[in-house]
């Protein structure tokens, strides 16, 4: 599971999918996750990196991340 290749992510939280021309807004953690999804493929890796830098417990983090990724799939931003 990876973010599609050409997705443009700006620091401001603007996300653009050039393949189909859709654009999105996301918050700062969203930006951080999307960036990680460019290279990393396992949710465990991403979860542990979030827990390292954010004040959050692992259950909340995992729930939120899974929810976020499901939405990314719905928006067609994820490669199988």
């Amino acid at each position: 599971m990876k973010l599609k290749k050409n997705i443009a992510i700006s620091e401001s939280g603007f996300v653009f999918n050039p393949e189909i021309g859709t654009s999105f807004t996301t918050n700062s953690l969203g930006v951080a996750i999307l960036k990680q999804l460019k290279t990393k493929t396992s949710t465990e890796e991403i979860t542990s990196s979030i827990i390292k830098s954010y004040d959050v417990d692992s259950i909340t983090c995992e729930k939120d991340l899974e929810d976020f990724i499901r939405i990314l799939e719905q928006f067609n931003l994820i490669e199988d």
């Binding site: 654009s23 999105f24 700062s28 953690l29 969203g30 954010y54 004040d55 959050v56 976020f68 939405i71």
Partner: peptide, 20 residues
């Protein structure tokens, strides 16, 4: 110290839908 956590959100930008 760790950063304040806030759940990740992503929203599609649609014409006609007001933003924050």
């Amino acid at each position: 110290s760790k950063l304040k956590y806030e759940s990740p959100i992503i929203k599609q930008i649609n014409a006609g839908i007001t933003s924050k």
